[in-house]
Amino acid sequence: MNGPATGHGHGLHDHEDHEHDRGLSYDLPVLARRRMIRLLAGASLLPLAGCADDDDTTSSAAASDTSSGGTASSSSTECATIPDETAGPYPGDGSNGVNVLKESGVVRSDITSSFGDSAGGRAEGVPLTITLTVVDAASGCGTPRAGAAVYLWQCDRAGDYSLYTEGVTDENYLRGVQETDDKGRVTFTSVFPGCYPGRWPHIHFEVYSSLADATAATAITSTSQLALPKDVCDTVYATDGYSRSVENPARLSLETDMIFSDGYDQQLAAMAGSVDKGYTATLTVPV
């Protein structure tokens, strides 16, 4: 597979190009909208506080087996939609050059290897299983969105994005689409992403109303990002292969990250596992 004519090297992973991804002029309007939405959502959720007791109990029980990160949902944001975020410059959905969504083989659960006419490479790193549960926010987040679809993509352990970064423009690993099951869930087999300058470790995803919409790369319902907790990042980045990620997290935090600085409760994954056995990351995605 051929990438876009303007292949990018690690030079793009600098602070200037990742404030964030398309620059301040692109991201600040997004952040301003998010802050307004949170203010309005917070006001509208006040009368619902009394109905969250049962869900708090469920969330606490679900969190008891996790080693780090947030719960899949919390009472204060139970019925709020997932914050809308920039897709960044490497989406691969046709909005910035190459469109992997229309290629045969993109619908898959294991995204560690490239597929189709690509170079056939494989992303190495600490194993990570990602489970997203898509629910309907309008119904109080209690109704799963069965038959929806999720397109998920991320950087590899070196901080590079397939299809775009110099050296991996012929690869399409760490990208895939899945249809949600009757419980609204999709699960991807991946590797723990690296941390490049200017961004906190994260994973991108888009939600579509159907698999047909996703593979046609049309009618996106929601675009957001999953955040990874600091303690797990520190543990993973101390292992072989993640040397580029050791210093970068020390220069920023979830609180100072351009995307997550205005609140990340709904985007911080609940995590369990270990370096030896691999990690699991779970998140509820209200749309």
Rank of each mutant, 00 (worst) to 15 (best):
Y208Q: 05
Y151H: 10
N172S: 08
T66M: 14
L12D: 11
G263T: 11
R22G: 11
A32H: 15
F188Y: 12
G278V: 08
A80M: 14
Q225V: 09
Y26H: 10
S139C: 02
C141S: 13
S114G: 14
R175A: 01
N2G: 08
S25R: 12
S224M: 03
T66C: 07
S190E: 03
G97I: 04
S59C: 07
L132H: 12
T165F: 11
D240H: 07
G97M: 05
D170E: 13
L152G: 03
L46V: 15
G92V: 13
M1R: 05
G142D: 13
G9P: 09
R108N: 04
L40T: 12
G50M: 04
D56K: 07
L163S: 06
G116P: 01
W200P: 01
C79F: 05
D213H: 03
T256V: 12
V150L: 02
A214G: 05
T77E: 05
Y242W: 05
T58A: 15
R22V: 12
T180P: 00
V287N: 08
E124P: 02
V168A: 10
I111K: 03
L174F: 04
L12T: 04
K277H: 06
V232K: 01
E103L: 08
V135Q: 10
S95W: 03
S243K: 13
A212I: 05
I37R: 12
C141Y: 02
S109H: 10
Q154C: 10
D21G: 00
L24R: 14
Y173N: 04
L228P: 06
L211V: 10
R244I: 05
D156T: 06
D231R: 11
D182W: 08
A272E: 12
N2Y: 11
S253T: 15
V186Q: 07
S95T: 09
Y90W: 12
A72Q: 06
F188T: 03
T187R: 10
R122I: 02
T218I: 05
M1F: 08
V168H: 02
R145G: 00
G121C: 01
V236P: 00
A137G: 02
L28R: 14
F115S: 01
S113H: 08
P4V: 09
D170G: 13
Y279L: 11
E206A: 04
G241T: 07
T221K: 15
P249T: 07
D65A: 13
E171F: 00
M271F: 09
N2E: 06
M271K: 04
G69E: 01
S59Y: 11
V285R: 15
N172D: 15
V236T: 07
H13Q: 14
